[in-house]
């Protein structure tokens, strides 16, 4: 039986009171900016003071802006490459780590691979400009193989692969960790049964390990899909006048329009388009993965 009634009412009141700061935070810093962003996208480009209502003019202008269309292309090329490479390489690395016979080796690989995930994109950029410098490691190794030294960072054609490479270097260990833990959680009885059926180790990987990883794969893919349109930091850090047109993604475009050039109506219209795109992509991915079923 629950306690006497007045007491439980008092109890609920104190619980609502405990929730108040959280509710206030979300209303002021989450819901309000969201609503304001949508409102601003239908208004003229002014940050403060009365703004005229302009209907869909901002949307029409954004969707016709060649810079916006280029940003869409950059976002899709970089975002989808990241998605495929993060997923495939981290899964492959985790499968390899699981097959290492030595516990020490497993831990060493896992730790080294995970470390870059703790670095800010500026730190990764610092590593990159050293390693890909004209006098850096990559050119030194290339030289041993007889390649001409290349100034990677100044080649506009290499801007996208370099950015994608940064992401892979930073993130593969993190996603591999998710897979590795899932592999450790697989019930050994399954392997035992496969062994009794005479399955080789390769066969066991194909018919026990991989099927058992399906839930983790779904989560990782969904996380990656949600991220496709929201890449910002790495481009912001690496951008310069020479590579901008190839790596400026949608969010860099929005930031540039809104925060740098103060064309707020324009920028929030762009942001709203990206938001809608993200929701649609995530919805499609959930459907394709049958995420909500099993």
């Amino acid at each position: 039986m629950p306690g006497p009634r007045p007491r439980s009412i008092r109890r609920y009141r104190s619980l609502y009171l405990l929730f108040l700061p959280v509710a206030l935070y979300f209303i002021l810093f989450s819901y309000y900016p969201f609503a304001k962003g949508i409102a601003m996208s239908f208004q003229g480009n002014r940050l403060i003071g009365p703004k005229p209502f302009v209907g869909l003019a901002n949307y029409r202008e954004v969707l016709a802006d060649p810079d916006f269309l280029r940003a869409v292309l950059n976002t899709l090329v970089i975002g989808l490459s990241d998605l495929v490479l993060y997923f495939a390489l981290s899964l492959f690395l985790a499968l390899c780590i699981a097959e290492l016979g030595s516990r020490l080796a497993r831990r060493a690989v896992q730790t080294f691979a995970y470390l870059p995930y703790l670095f800010s994109w500026s730190v990764i950029a610092g590593v990159w400009i050293l390693v890909f410098d004209q006098r850096g490691i990559v050119n030194a190794i290339g030289g041993l193989l007889g390649a001409e030294p290349t100034f990677f960072l100044a080649e506009p054609g290499l801007a996208r692969p370099l950015i994608i490479g940064m992401g892979v270097w930073r993130s593969v260990g993190y996603f591999a960790l998710l897979f590795t833990v899932a592999i450790t959680d697989i019930d050994p009885v399954l392997y035992e049964a496969a062994r009794i059926d005479g399955a080789s180790r390769l066969r066991q990987i194909a018919s026990v390990t991989l099927p058992s990883l399906r839930p983790t794969m779904k989560v990782v893919i969904l996380l990656l899909v949600m991220g496709v349109l929201t890449h910002f930091d790495e481009m912001f850090v690496m951008q310069n006048p020479a590579n901008r047109t190839r790596i400026a993604t949608l969010l860099v475009y929005v930031f540039d329009m809104g925060i740098v050039k103060f064309k707020t109506g324009f920028a929030t219209a762009g942001a709203t388009v990206v938001m809608a795109g993200t929701l649609i992509l995530a919805g499609l991915a959930r459907k394709a993965l049958r995420y909500d079923e099993a």
Binding site: T230, G258, A271
Partner: peptide, 23 residues
């Protein structure tokens, strides 16, 4: 209350930077 919290997770903050600045 749970839905009120969950709903904030569907929109990443990066997407609202301009309005976050304004607010």
């Amino acid at each position: 209350l749970t839905s009120f919290v969950l709903l904030t997770m569907t929109i990443p903050a990066e997407l609202t930077l301009v309005s976050i600045y304004a607010v």
